[in-house]
């Protein structure tokens, strides 16, 4: 009975084939690279040079164009990692574990960028590099969660087992993220509210938020690019003995 509920279309299972992913990822990769480059350059130049200065914060608000995308990505990547891990656990898909594994370091990097740019931004605005505010604290906890996932993934040498263990931890962590977020919010709050919401009009003029939208979308493309690169590298590492890879044009050079 369970099988009928969980049956997925053929393309879904096809996605789990390393060969298919390697080839399809190879096609997608340059597109993501181009789109990420265009969006990030456009957004950053517009945001840093042409967007109007803030009436209160002057030019210091411009760090937002790095800070906000990094903060958004840091959370989405953790969620993405947990979803990939869940797919791997449910449909026994090795490739999903590779994708989850690729996410860890990228997510941790975005979290560190968010914390650092936040600290630099906090000094002129709040007068302190660090305050024990809810958002800062929950981002710091998120970094610790990434550190735990990374440590667990490295500690287990067998990849299949490491992938499953990491997936379980990522899922438990994801379930906990909202609880951690709200518990620290009740505990202490100073940070301004979200920059974007889907339901209401932005509180910024278009000249300020459109560049931000571009850098956020560009960061997502950059993330997709790096995940593809890292996952394809892992495919090369783990599939090195297989015949499809030995005959692949990337290897033979033909």
């Amino acid at each position: 009975m369970t099988q009928s509920i969980w049956r997925m279309p053929r393309w879904f299972h096809q996605m789990g084939s390393p060969k298919w992913f390697y080839d399809f990822g190879g096609i997608l990769q340059p597109w993501f690279a181009v789109v990420a480059f265009v969006l990030l350059t456009w957004g950053v130049v517009w945001g840093l040079a042409y967007a109007p200065a803030d009436y209160q914060q002057g030019n210091s608000f411009r760090i937002m164009y790095v800070h906000v995308p990094a903060a958004i990505l840091s959370q989405s990547i953790f969620l993405g990692m947990a979803v990939a891990g869940a797919i791997g656990l449910i449909w026994k898909m090795k490739l999903a574990f590779m994708v989850a594994r690729s996410c860890i370091a990228i997510g941790a990097t975005f979290t560190i960028i968010a914390l650092l740019t936040g600290a630099i931004w906090g000094k002129p605005t709040w007068g302190a590099y660090w305050v024990w505010d809810a958002r800062l604290t929950s981002t710091l906890v998120l970094l610790f969660l990434y550190a735990g996932v990374m440590a667990l993934n490295q500690a287990i040498s067998e990849r299949q087992v490491a992938g499953k263990a990491t997936a379980i931890l990522a899922i438990v962590g994801t379930i906990n993220i909202p609880i951690i977020k709200y518990s620290v919010e009740w505990w202490n709050t100073l940070h301004q509210s979200s920059s974007f919401t889907l339901t209401s009009k932005p509180s910024m003029p278009a000249d300020m938020y459109l560049p931000l939208l571009l850098t956020v979308l560009g960061s997502y493309c950059l993330f997709a690019l790096v995940v593809l690169m890292r996952t394809r590298t892992q495919i090369l590492q783990t599939q090195s003995g297989t015949s499809w890879l030995a005959q692949h044009r990337d290897i033979t050079g033909a």
């Binding site: 906890v141 610790f144 969660l145 550190a147 735990g148 440590a151 667990l152 500690a155 931890l169 438990v172 962590g173 906990n176 951690i180 518990s183 620290v184």
Partner: peptide, 11 residues
């Protein structure tokens, strides 16, 4: 390792 994994969940 256990400490690293679990302490964030204890927040």
């Amino acid at each position: 390792l256990l400490t690293l994994l679990i302490l964030p969940l204890y927040v």
